[in-house]
Write a protein that binds this DNA or RNA. Structure first.
Length: 301
DNA sequence: AACCAGGCGCATG
DNA sequence: CATGCGCATGGT
């Protein structure tokens, strides 16, 4: 089995999703070319390279490297649906956007954009730690070094693809090694310790998602050194798809709110709460769309 | 040339 | 509880 189709729901745009995956950053875990995204993932300890392309009313999944049994293909289909958040009916969110005087333009401008996730929880947390307090281009550079140094490489006819390094691998790396890749001592420490927590089974996506309430999830996440409020919320929104998690204090979020004249200054939490209270159940989506708005050149209210 | 980036932990008042 | 500090480097 080397291909499969997923039918598109309403309010889904492959082009918008592809735009997000492409942006203008040096992403090392997938490649975009000819309106297709290609990526390596791991199933049953075996790497598999697949691509996604737009095909009329469907999304075409193709296996680029490796072999997929029918059950693996079924798993891959489900993985892709999670990654691009394909199954969610986002019409309620669009209704909320449409009702908002300043944000209703988004229903047209970003039509069909889905909250693209980070399915691997360990990767998601490491990515947050890498990105803390540094500019995104440097963050992507650090991630690339980490992935190319410690991740599994899959060779294909069209180039190399990488899997994010496993917790086992990263937990046995030394601080000095990461420092040589220009990680700060703290970031190196956090990543190694958190990788240990994963390989020791102290935390896993399974464990985190089965916790009964959000407070416990946040508590478990922030008990890890290097994971604060921002990271916990980012991870819950991107990896567990919690509907109402806002990475508070996020500089991009604050800039977007300020561009739309929705807050007076960075400490204007009252205006923020007022805005988000109108998006109950869809706060994470609103954050994602606000981030999307940052890419509009010279956007000012 | 300063200043600030997808923050966080730790030390103080 | 609030505020200050260091962190690593690159972009503006």
């Amino acid at each position: 089995m080397n291909s499969s189709l997923i039918s598109k729901p309403t309010l889904f745009s492959f082009r918008e999703c592809l735009w997000f995956l492409d942006r203008n950053y040096d992403e090392c875990l997938h490649k975009i070319s000819n309106s297709r995204v290609t990526k390596a993932i791991q199933f049953n300890n075996k790497p598999l390279v697949f691509s996604l392309a737009d095909k009329d009313q469907d999304i075409l999944i193709q296996i680029e490297e490796g072999h997929a049994t029918p059950s693996m293909m079924e798993e891959l289909r489900s993985w892709v649906q999670d990654w691009l958040d394909i199954q969610r009916d986002i019409r309620p969110f669009y209704q909320m956007l449409a009702n908002h005087g300043k944000l209703n333009y988004m229903t047209k401008e970003f039509n069909g954009l889905r909250l693209i996730g980070i399915e691997n929880l360990h990767e998601s947390i490491c990515w947050c730690i890498i990105g803390q307090q540094i500019n995104l281009s440097f963050a992507y550079k650090l991630k690339r070094r980490l992935v190319e140094e410690f991740g599994t490489r899959v060779r294909t006819a069209t180039g190399n693809f990488y899997l994010f390094p496993s917790p086992e691998t990263l937990s046995s790396v030394s601080v000095e090694t990461l420092k040589a890749l220009q990680f700060s001592r703290q970031k190196a420490d956090y990543i190694i310790q958190i990788s240990k927590s994963f390989s020791d089974g102290l935390i896993s996506k399974e464990k985190l998602s089965t916790l009964p309430d959000l407070k416990e999830k946040k508590y478990l996440l922030t008990s890890l050194k290097g994971v604060g409020e921002w990271t916990a919320n980012y991870v819950l929104m991107k990896s567990l798809r919690e509907p109402d998690c806002i990475p508070l204090g996020d500089i991009g979020l604050l800039n977007a709110l300020s561009n739309h004249a929705l807050i007076k200054n960075r400490k204007d939490s009252r205006s923020m709460e007022k805005l988000f209270s109108a998006f109950e159940g869809w706060k994470s989506y609103l954050v994602f769309y606000l981030w999307r708005s940052l890419a509009i050149p010279n956007f000012h209210h």
